[in-house]
Write a protein that binds this DNA or RNA. Structure first.
Length: 419
RNA sequence: GCGAGUGUAGCUCAGUGGUUAGAGCACCGGUUUGUGGUACCGGGGGUCGUGGGUUCAAGUCCCAUCACUCGCCCCA
């Protein structure tokens, strides 16, 4: 036997309940998105590298070290998407779908970042997300936050997360704050961690959410972004809070909450948990006005979020909707094969999930029925063929009855309907 | 990219430098030649991650390497 191959680092396979839990999250998210008028859409799994380089920020870690980038073969450089928002903006622009605004869109699918894997962090991970494009009102931010809160509630995670809210203000406010912060931090450079000294030069706002103990005090006493908001930015933030309050959505203002990606402005938020080790954020987003312009289209407002499916799955634990219980058609003799196949198709026509067992002893086939969680088994052998009927075994009660072929669908529907 | 921990059966794990490496679960068979799930009986399954070293003797100690896990960085 050849050496067993293994999955690529940071990827993994999903079977059984794990896969059902995953799908349940996607289905739930899609249905909640639909309730808010967000239409499903999909973008390619890879894009020209330019799409991400232009929008995430040249200095972001995603762009500098985490992208899976390769040559497309025709001289173009392409990248497996590390996140979903930039591709959505690109798709609206390149598809010319800017006639009907605002656009409300839902997506789900794999994302790729070349990071060291750890709990809740994979190299191929999966997100669901919504984007509201072309809506400049702070009510739009509240709408997407409400949809996110509803998703978490629907997944029974309302008590596991808290909503952290902050604002980066408009670009003028943000620039003024940035210079004030750099001035403050620069005087305390010696006291900062090595990581934060690097952040100071590249992305100073990130010093604020550093975990290093030596940085904490410096960050806590730093000038507050909220004090640097101009009138427009302050009003915007006040409106977001006002409408969240009106909806009864509770939140904490987190002055240390900043975003890693350059395109965010005004509202930023994260639903965080303390149950996933180092990875607290399960659903996060914010406002990104102007992203479509960077994609070569008109300047449009935008706001939205993405949620990590693996992280949500870790939190939802064992909670799962009941699996469909199939009927097993057991073919006991070779002569009964055609009848068994026909019988299985007939049951499927009735909408009953049906699996056909073709090999092994009856004992083996019934054991298989038990393992796949079958509700009932239809037994077909020489005796049944001759008599023109089938044995139907209720696998929960063990009761067995003889049923003419024509009555099988009704009989099995009956059994399946109670459990 | 950096740090720590862990690698023994399909899975979860015992195994004090000393006989032929074990358990539970899972799997296969039998009790039942056409009857699952429970019970009882039996069986198969191991490059002890890999390579080197120390030793009379290594799953056990040392070194290297690979993988996984967790953390840093960053982020969903």
């Amino acid at each position: 036997m050849a050496r067993a191959l293994r999955p690529v680092r940071g990827t993994h396979d999903l079977f059984g309940d794990d896969k059902r839990r995953f799908d349940h999250i996607v289905v739930t998210a899609r249905s909640i998105a639909a309730a808010y008028g967000y239409a499903p859409m999909a973008t390619p799994t890879f894009e020209f590298t330019e799409v991400f380089r232009r929008t995430l920020g040249e200095t972001s870690d995603i762009v500098t070290k985490e992208m899976y980038t390769f040559a497309s073969g025709s001289g173009e450089e392409v990248t497996l998407r590390p996140e979903g928002t930039a591709p959505v903006a690109r798709a609206l622009v390149s598809g010319g779908r800017l006639q009907v605004l605002p656009a409300r869109l839902f997506y789900d699918g794999p994302m790729f970042r070349r990071e060291r894997p750890q709990k809740g962090r994979m190299r191929q991970f999966h997100q669901v997300g919504i984007e509201l494009i072309g809506e400049p009102s702070p009510v739009g931010d509240v709408e997407v936050i409400a949809a996110g809160a509803r998703l978490l509630k629907e997944l029974d995670l309302a008590d596991s997360v808290v909503l952290r809210l902050h604002t980066l203000g408009n670009s003028a406010s943000r620039d003024r704050y940035r210079s004030a912060l750099v001035g403050y931090l620069d005087q305390r450079r010696e006291g900062l961690s090595a990581d934060s000294r690097r952040r100071l030069d590249r992305n100073p706002l990130r010093v604020l959410d550093s975990k290093a103990p030596e940085d904490r005090q410096v960050a806590n006493e730093a000038p507050r972004l909220l004090d640097f908001l101009d009138r427009e930015s302050a009003d915007f933030f006040a409106a977001v809070r006002h409408h969240l309050d009106a909806l009864g959505i509770s939140y904490e203002i987190d002055p240390m909450l900043v975003r890693g990606l350059d395109y965010y402005m005004h509202t930023t938020f994260e639903f965080v948990t303390d149950r996933l080790g180092a990875q607290g954020a399960v659903l996060a987003g914010g406002r990104y006005d102007g992203l479509t312009e960077r994609m070569g289209g008109p300047a449009l407002a935008g706001t939205g979020w993405a949620a990590g499916i693996e992280r949500l799955a870790l939190l939802t634990g064992d909670a799962l909707p009941a699996a469909t219980r199939p009927v097993l058609v057991a073919c006991i003799s070779a002569a009964a094969t055609a009848q068994a196949l026909l019988c299985a198709e007939t049951l499927r026509n009735m909408g009953l999930a049906t699996e056909l067992a073709l090999q092994g002893s009856l004992k083996r086939q019934l054991r298989h029925a038990d393992r796949i969680g079958a509700r009932a088994a239809v037994l077909l052998g020489d005796r049944e063929l001759e008599a023109g009927l089938a044995l139907v075994r209720d696998l929960d009660t063990g009761q067995q009855s003889e049923v003419p072929f024509a009555l099988l669908p009704n009989h099995l529907s009956e059994i399946s309907s109670n459990g």
